[in-house]
């Protein structure tokens, strides 16, 4: 028996919007720790890892560790029917082939339930070690979205280079080239407007902009995004979900022929 009640239901709506374009169907893993997911896109170039810790739910009951396979497009369709202020409860009985989403309006005058068919999904989990990254950048998530969107109109790939002077985003295409440099700036009024660069080693990696643009669908979840990079490793793009968890994206780099 699984029963998860999330007072801030809009978080779940935003999570689905953040992952459904990258992954069509996925297994959600429920355990006493929390509600999580790890899934790769069909080309195995990008991966999304979601964690919603059990403490973040008003009520969290998960009798045994289970994996429930859902079509994310269909799940997003159902969650779109929840109001932004609604409380969302996810329920699944043991052995059932359906999951129920219940939406309650804040004043309890409207209660809806949507039942969705589950699916059997073969999925492999990648073992991603906890690593110290050579460079990490914290920046406003809106700024990162803007950079990815702007550069996509010029080129298909972006080279992200971190030096002690800042982080440089470079692209080139048929019409020309573009460089955007962001410098460390922590002397701002609001911490969410700061750009913070931590660098042990300079790093320069190239990525497909199409995926980075897809990751920015998570922007409504967090004011700040963290980019972590090491030479010859996938980049990690992390959006924290309050103190409840995170959405992390991993993207394999382009490698010189």
């Amino acid at each position: 028996m699984l029963e998860l009640r999330l007072v801030q239901g809009s978080l779940l709506k935003k999570v689905l919007e953040a992952i459904k374009d990258l992954v069509n169907e996925a297994n959600f893993d429920c355990s006493s720790t929390g509600f999580s997911l790890q899934a790769m896109d069909s080309s195995h170039v990008a991966l999304v890892a979601l964690m919603l810790r059990s403490e973040g739910f008003e009520h969290y009951r998960c009798d045994r560790t289970i994996s429930i396979g859902m079509n994310l497009t269909n799940m997003a369709k159902m969650l779109k029917c929840a109001g932004n202020d609604d409380i969302i409860t996810i329920k699944a009985d043991d052995g059932s082939d359906t999951v129920t989403f219940m939406f309650e309006s804040p004043s309890q005058d409207k209660i809806s339930d949507f039942e969705m068919k589950l699916m059997e999904i073969d999925s492999e989990h990648l073992g991603i070690p906890d690593t110290e990254y050579q460079s990490s950048i914290k920046m406003p998530s809106q700024e990162f979205l803007r950079i990815c969107k702007d550069l996509s109109s010029i080129g298909d790939t972006v080279m992200i280079s971190v030096t002690k002077d800042g982080v440089k985003f470079t692209t080139s295409g048929d019409i020309g080239t573009a460089n955007i440099v962001c410098r460390q700036n922590t002397s701002v009024d609001e911490p969410e407007n700061a750009t913070e660069i931590k660098m042990q080693e300079p790093v320069s990696l190239t990525f497909a902009l199409r995926y980075l643009n897809s990751f920015t669908k998570a922007t409504p979840l967090a004011n700040i995004v963290t980019l972590s990079m090491s030479a010859d490793l996938p980049i990690v793009v992390e959006y924290k979900i309050g103190d409840m968890g995170y959405v992390r994206y991993y993207l394999a780099p382009k490698i010189e022929e």
Binding site: V45, I255, E257
Partner: peptide, 14 residues
């Protein structure tokens, strides 16, 4: 000029 790598070349399955 460059090839797209996949995640399985960096991480093993578990």
């Amino acid at each position: 000029y460059s090839n797209q790598s996949t995640l399985s070349s960096f991480y093993g399955t578990r």
